[in-house]
Design a protein around this nucleic acid. Sequence first.
DNA 1: GATGAATGAGTATTCATTCAT
DNA 2: TATGAATGAATACTCATTCAT
Lengths: 200, 200, 200, 200
Amino acid sequence: MADLIRTPQQKRSIDKKNRIIEAGYELFARDGYFNTNTAQIAKHAGVSTGIVYGYFRDKRDILLEVLSIYIDRVFTPVMDIFENLQAPLDFEPLLGTIIDETVSIHKNNDAIHEALHSLSSTDEAVSNKFLELEKDMTMNIVDTLKSIGYAPVDIYERVHLAMETIQSYAHECVYDLHDYIDYDKMRAGVIKMLLHLFND
Amino acid sequence: MADLIRTPQQKRSIDKKNRIIEAGYELFARDGYFNTNTAQIAKHAGVSTGIVYGYFRDKRDILLEVLSIYIDRVFTPVMDIFENLQAPLDFEPLLGTIIDETVSIHKNNDAIHEALHSLSSTDEAVSNKFLELEKDMTMNIVDTLKSIGYAPVDIYERVHLAMETIQSYAHECVYDLHDYIDYDKMRAGVIKMLLHLFND
Amino acid sequence: MADLIRTPQQKRSIDKKNRIIEAGYELFARDGYFNTNTAQIAKHAGVSTGIVYGYFRDKRDILLEVLSIYIDRVFTPVMDIFENLQAPLDFEPLLGTIIDETVSIHKNNDAIHEALHSLSSTDEAVSNKFLELEKDMTMNIVDTLKSIGYAPVDIYERVHLAMETIQSYAHECVYDLHDYIDYDKMRAGVIKMLLHLFND
Amino acid sequence: MADLIRTPQQKRSIDKKNRIIEAGYELFARDGYFNTNTAQIAKHAGVSTGIVYGYFRDKRDILLEVLSIYIDRVFTPVMDIFENLQAPLDFEPLLGTIIDETVSIHKNNDAIHEALHSLSSTDEAVSNKFLELEKDMTMNIVDTLKSIGYAPVDIYERVHLAMETIQSYAHECVYDLHDYIDYDKMRAGVIKMLLHLFND
DNA sequence: GATGAATGAGTATTCATTCAT
DNA sequence: TATGAATGAATACTCATTCAT
């Protein structure tokens, strides 16, 4: 007998729901999904354990909402860069901007990314949301590029590959900190590769 | 008084320990670390629940051993390619070989990779082992390349970046299967980028 | 400071209280007392969860009121039969009437009977109300019979036993539906036994 | 992944399982199924909460086993009476024996009967077991009676009705204790009715 | 009076780990 | 060494009851 999940309308309730999501965001990021319990989430959000189940079906439902927030935080800033893009296209500064923005996003959200992504393999809804995110980003970027006249063959593959490469680099920057790597030099390498990928 | 963890000497015992590790490997890969319990591992390995604690300090200790096995399985085949490398260096076929081998490795081990990597963010030992793996691979490859006379500036950055890029691509191939991507064309894109990265 | 339980005076309030009792009646009958929660009762009654505690001390208090209603529904129709009883007493048609009426009552109320009666063993108030019901029915019937001149020895025992027997039969009819039983023939058996019980 | 439920083979384990069932029996009888929690059962049985789930799938599974024990305790003694029954049939002492035995059984088991029976309305397995019990008893008694030459028309109805009547009486004796009833006189009434039911 | 959001104690169940045999 | 029964702390989720509005 599924007790109704409240869809909060009033400001105070929306706040409360958001506080729970934010608490989930922070705790999942810090300790991982399985090392975080609902009581901790409630406490961190400053609410009772019971009310959590007024807003969410179950713990996984919190995860899904956290995932949505995460996706929004990752997707939006990159898309904003393309928003006001104008021909003629000058790839070099564009790539630089995207790389720096992506690194910045990863710096703030990589922990939650790991926590969420790790569930992809066992939770299809999570997996699908990640796939969809990649698809949406690729499609949006391709559309924007086409709209300003850039439409080479294999554009989907190029854009997707570029995205992956940039994300790899950003992930490296945030986490790995190998002492034998100069990340600025690596950044130059990324740009060099991608310029070559897009030109011709 | 901490019960000693046996370091098995006899063949039968070594077998048993390995069976437990292999069981952990398969179950962690299939269901994830947190969705696998020690009783399942024991059963899958054909041993009693109790004896697991004769060979491993705790559940996490199994994880660490699984991680070692994983690292070995990923590291060795790539290094083997470089083993008999001879000058003069022809990058194009070499990259093709590495890419195909990496994709093949990922096909067999990506599930466990996800399961293990997801623990990086909350377990420093796991995180360090992954860092070390990347470092070892980079170092080995760089050494080999140098030994046959290839030693440009920024060689560490180039090699590391190439590795990351190839791994990204391999991961894509195994999992994502975006319907708008032709993975052979993307493979060509990877090779194109990397050739440019290494030449000059 | 115990919040006063309102004894509703106004028509609207009486309606509301009755709606809650009726909702309790239906849900307890369908799902049992422990499988019904107060939110469901409130919803079924079309009132808020909070106001339930304006009319009832607690959940058990609803139960007690439901029990009263139930007792009324079971008691009254049987007593009505005796209301206009006239000498000389002809037991056979009287028994037939009572049996059929009792079966009819059970058909409509056996589910709630089970739900309520099951609480007898752990709730003395419930248990007492059931005892009282039986006592009242026995006393009323005995009084009526005496008033029209039927007053054999052991009249209390006879009447009480007859009531029990008829209730057993009615319960059988409603629930058990053993395929090896012809319930009309059993009805004849009941009448045969009871006639013998009362004559001489 | 249903963890295996142990089916205990060794004496100590069987003892333990039985202790849990017996604990359930006593607590369900005293407090009812819903007012008893698994921790109480474990404590009463002198075992840990965890091991309960080694022997039983869930709390309801304990209930089902308790029900089986109950049925055995109620069924067996009555059947024993019929075991050595010999022609010619003398109903009067036989009925006396059965009534006294039934009252004795009810004295010891009526509390658990209420607790279990109350779940009939919401749990089909429970309901079916009760129906089956009645059927088994009726069938057995009818068979025995037929085997010694008593086989009137409507024998199923008569036997079933007799059983119900005796159980009603026994239940009355145990619980109701109405002060206006002399239970010995009522017992005589029961015998009188049943003799009439069976003769001719 | 009325609402329904909020509380937090309570419960069934799981599982890493221990231990008697 | 090996077994697998046993432990008990931990956790997701429920629900009778309260309370701010």
